[in-house]
Design a protein around this nucleic acid. Structure first.
Lengths: 345, 345
DNA sequence: CGGCGTGATGTTAACGTAAACATCGGGGTG
DNA sequence: CACCCCGATGTTTACGTTAACATCACGCCG
């Protein structure tokens, strides 16, 4: 048994305890604790010593109660399993920390109405000053949710720009760059592996792919639909490998591109000699695919930073209002794309 | 300008406001809010209506102050960028939520003493009842840290079993399975790409690799050191490709295995015909590597669950004490391993 | 028919902190 | 030398909630 760490609730060391030991008032302890200037150096040292000795830890509940704010942001999302989400959350946490805010994670059990409802009902009880929603807003609508009043919101990966501030990667321009790159290399057209239908990001990429082809006067081949996973990309890739005309593929994310690469490899269609492949995201692994993947780089750190900035602006009553912030992308050229073997006639 | 959402701090709707509107005392509102039984149905309905009308949201700071607990757990880690960390955090968040606890993320800016110190000084101010540390404890020691008193701790990925409760994947057994699998296939010995020296998980895997070889009476080839990234695996792989005797490689994680696969491919050493490769983690993409990777599956969900369980046990004063919980692994056989081309003489 | 228990509701106080105001002492200025 | 101002510190109070205790009405039992 470890030496009795008493842990009855409310048994913490309070300012009053520190004040008693240091022989000052608790207000002076408060001033030391918050770094108020008008405390004489000798007093400050005395108080700090007393804090150290007693193991004083400021009670943030009391602090929050007094200040009327929690200095905490909630992040509500379905999963951390996708590169984009985990990287975005990491950036959010880092930038929020630099602004003195902590991050509370609110996972949604399942991407269903019940799951979302559950998360939002828990939300009502949470100590947050604002919320960043990383998911499709139409799921919010479907669940007929009302966000807790008095809580500010910023949304990622959505088209809700008219109701909430939205921060997102410039999906459309990224997809355009990918397709244009393939066309510039001389490919007649570009085939596409799309993501799940309910994903806004996926839809945007697909729209931009189609528009870019149409504007260039090319035919628009039928899409293969995946679910972001490498496995689904593999299945799509098998189907594409069977299309003799297919010389260029734009996959809506790097993982599906990985699956496409494997399918083409297994079917004896060398990349990029026979078929060129472009992905989206630029996950760290993509430079080690076989061959290293040409892909659209997303700046997740910037997305996270902008989210927090926008949210803090709202919290501080600098009205930003609805509107969309688009974070630019850039094409990273590696070894998975090349000119087609025979120039189109 | 949106219809004046007044947001002066402390301007929230309080129980007193609800009580006034409902024509009851605030204590009755409190009882309704906490689900206390002795409120008559008609009163309850009145109060609920008033809450709805005013958009009442309980102030969790006040609640926490009164109760002496926050119902929040802190998770301190370096990065969410590794599969293991993000999956573990996700599991922690999910299980904690099911127990009525929220998760606060505490990112460490950099894996340096300063970074860790910064995180822990912030920690002192955070509203958490317990902490899950996902990193090497010797980094804590190096930084000469004292954890805030009265806060319970559980550690992942560490050897601090004698000071804190530890939950971790059974690294040693996973590595043993990987090596044994290759030996069973008939390989004379197994080469190894290790992770960064400061990682406990990496060291454990390497130790087990060496021990398994020695116990089988095999020679122990020199290790290649990587940093978990696919790029570092690629560099290691180039070096291994130059070893004519090398027929089997155990990479300490899947990402480095990916790099090894690419290096071997580029150097014309087909996998698994020429060289067999085993990874560690079983990330979702590994089944789409070229070829699909044989690897050691980690149960991150279970790790997360056990962490929370252990921490809550401590918080609830059911002393568990230091000790290590090991979560088992299992080998997933795919297409990157096979018997060596010529049986060893 | 009076007392008393029971269940519903109201009143009081306290959780730990920090803003606002009060006090106290010393040094500069007219 | 008296006065005033300012910086350091102390005192009071309120933040919103809930445990503990107080009160009140009602109905049952002796």
């Amino acid at each position: 048994m470890t030496a009795g760490r008493t842990r009855r609730p409310g048994r913490g060391v309070s300012m009053a305890d520190v004040a008693r030991l240091a022989g000052v008032s608790s207000q002076t302890v408060s001033r030391v604790s918050t770094g108020h200037p008008s405390v004489v150096e000798s007093t400050r040292r005395q108080v700090l010593a007393a804090m150290q000795q007693l193991g004083y830890r400021p009670n943030s509940a009391a602090r929050a109660l007094k200040r009327g704010e929690f200095r905490t942001l909630g992040v509500i999302l379905f999963t951390l399993a996708t590169t984009g989400n985990s990287r975005t959350v990491e950036a959010i946490a880092a930038y929020a920390a630099s602004e003195g805010y902590a991050i509370t994670l609110i996972p949604v059990a399942a991407p269903t109405q019940d799951g979302v409802l559950g998360a939002f009902s828990r939300l009502g009880e949470l100590a947050v000053d604002g919320i960043i929603v990383i998911m499709e807003v139409h799921l919010l609508d479907a669940a007929n949710l009302s966000l807790p009043p008095g809580v500010q919101v910023v949304v990622v990966d959505s088209d809700a720009g008219d109701r909430y501030p939205v921060v997102d990667t410039d999906q459309a321009d990224g997809a355009r760059q990918a397709v244009q790159h393939l066309l510039d290399l001389g490919h007649e057209t570009v085939w596409h592996v799309t993501g799940p239908a309910e994903s806004f990001a996926s839809e945007r990429r697909t729209q931009a792919w189609r528009r870019t082809l149409l504007e260039a006067g090319r035919t628009v081949p039928p899409v293969r639909r995946g679910d972001w996973s490498a496995d689904s990309g593999y299945r799509a890739g098998l189907s594409l490998a069977a299309e003799p005309d297919c010389t260029a593929v734009f996959a809506a994310n790097d993982q599906m591109a990985l699956g496409v690469l494997r399918a083409l490899h297994e079917r004896g269609r060398p990349v990029p000699r026979d078929v060129s492949v472009v992905g989206f995201d630029d996950i760290p692994d993509s430079s080690s695919f076989i061959p290293p993947l040409t892909t659209v780089h997303q700046d997740f750190a910037e997305v996270g930073r902008r989210c927090v900035q926008g949210l803090l602006r709202q919290i501080r009553d600098e009205p930003a209002g609805p509107g969309t912030v688009l974070v630019p992308t850039r094409l990273v050229q590696r070894a998975s794309t090349a000119a087609p073997r025979r120039s189109p006639g």
